[in-house]
Design a protein around this nucleic acid. Sequence first.
DNA 1: ATTAGCACTCGTGATATGTGAGTGCTAACA
DNA 2: TGTTAGCACTCACATATCACGAGTGCTAAT
Lengths: 341, 341
Amino acid sequence: MISDRQLRILEAIINDFIDTAQPVGSRTISKKYPLGISSATIRNEMADLEELGYLQQPHTSAGRIPSDLGYRLYVDSLINPHSISVEEKELIQSLLLHKIIEATDVANQASELIANFTHLVSIVTIPQFNKCKLANLKMMKITDAKVLLILVTNTGVVKSLQLALTNTDQFILDKISDTLLNSLIGETIENIDVRSILKMKEKLQGFGNIVDYLIPILRDALKGLNETELYIKGEENILTISEFNDSDKARQLFNFFKSEESLIQLLEAVEPNRISIKIGSEIGIDVLEPCSMITSSYKVDGKSDGKILVIGPKRMDYGNVISIVNYISNTLSELFSGINL
Amino acid sequence: MISDRQLRILEAIINDFIDTAQPVGSRTISKKYPLGISSATIRNEMADLEELGYLQQPHTSAGRIPSDLGYRLYVDSLINPHSISVEEKELIQSLLLHKIIEATDVANQASELIANFTHLVSIVTIPQFNKCKLANLKMMKITDAKVLLILVTNTGVVKSLQLALTNTDQFILDKISDTLLNSLIGETIENIDVRSILKMKEKLQGFGNIVDYLIPILRDALKGLNETELYIKGEENILTISEFNDSDKARQLFNFFKSEESLIQLLEAVEPNRISIKIGSEIGIDVLEPCSMITSSYKVDGKSDGKILVIGPKRMDYGNVISIVNYISNTLSELFSGINL
DNA sequence: ATTAGCACTCGTGATATGTGAGTGCTAACA
DNA sequence: TGTTAGCACTCACATATCACGAGTGCTAAT
């Protein structure tokens, strides 16, 4: 196996490579890192580490760079997640918990925060709204042809849907809203089906016409709630990754991030409940070969649901990213579970 | 002045340069464009056009490229805006008019549409919400500490604001909402000041406490409505501009687009009511020197208000961009004036 | 006024050369 | 036996040199 000294050398090499983006030579290590051994010794160890697959050489007369296997070892045994500062925590808290109310805005803001703190690409999905319980409901007349249906869950998440409903009157809408709310309150959104809506009809004998008209519209609107929505921020940061200096490659990656299908595919691989790190080819997507991906999820009412994803160069500050993702994911879990609201 | 033949040659040169991004030589023009004159003649005319300032030469033995002045002439007298296809019109209509209801979503979607159609960077601002008249209003309890205030204008625009209001009851909120709406309906949002809210207090004698508490919160919330909000899309398209192949330059421009202040400065220069084109240094911003900018505005209730802005390389398809900006701006004008809703 | 012809310019891309960071190996040393 | 100094060797990268050719401006013929 690998000796302790080899591990320390590997660590030094990867740290230096993360800093400089340049292949690391034996002399650099012996001078910059106080390992107490000469460059010749380090050279020997490096040759061994390369044979073991942890390092690779771009060409004979260059220094070494970490292989995916090297990064894997580094990530698994050498990272110490630094905790983030109180100021940063307060900033996150204030931006996520106080100003925002719609689920989409929360995800947007969270994604923005991660992108800003890490200077990497961040993706946040919102939890499946339809797994939550209904807490409040109203319909508002917008124009002669449009009505806005506003739903609030017990976790304090708001969602609004547009209904195409002509010739309505706010008074009638209020009546219907109240009746709907009374019979559906506490119900999980996904359980609100035609049957439960039909019950309402009995209670609204006077408004037969409009209720008949409303039912299919309402059903369709609710159906649309279980689509995955994702919020991606910080795409511009890929320009700082030296591997994407070539503007063609950069555009390729930009386009990848623009394609919802690609991203959803990526999201499906996210393991619930714990931070996971994929390195380079482990991600399994060609354009992301020069990247690492850190994923996590957050909980809604105890169940793992929303996802967080950070993508950056392999030579990223793993410790920092992990601590930020962790903190945001915990904050979101609290937020969507109604604590602190 | 400039002869008709010179104008036709200038047109050919610019068209070719827009196509190929390469300096255009006299031989190219005489072969590709049926002007019926030899390359030598064209060479002479090109020398004259350069002397007049319409062309420039990157170096002695290269072809010519248009100067800003050349583009200016081209834009002023040579562009024929092609009309956009029926399919495109239908797509725009369906995406803008039917699925969307919040002002922010409209601007977002419009900006996205422009970016997709032009493959350039697009910025759309939303009209000043507070110039519209109040048509509907509701308050909804979200959690024990949060209330959502939803405003609807006569133009069918919805805006929701979060209020920090503890220990409320939906029944009381409904009462207050109704009273507020009754006394404020038809009022311009910006005219809703403390005085008019105070009037409400008289009508709500029974709820003294909560109304006292609500007034400053409501005032602050309404104040926040006159900030400029802008929606920028298609930033990734700057990577196709050859001038920004250098990833440092590209990042510079990305950062420019990320800074709200810079963009607001840009927006202030937008002339109301008509399409305007600024070329290179005319924009007055260093990083945008290699770009042209096409701006327009759309109307809300007859008054010019929202802004549209497209930024791309000088060698963009002006005719196409103009027609798209025109069509979207008209569609938004209709939308925000309540027609078609 | 137009154009064919020609010498001239100069950016581009290919080829040759020198430099130096880094290596692997050997031999001496603790 | 592990460590290190020394040294020859490798090879990417930067620099210099050169040939090519697209494009020009000018002149002279039409």
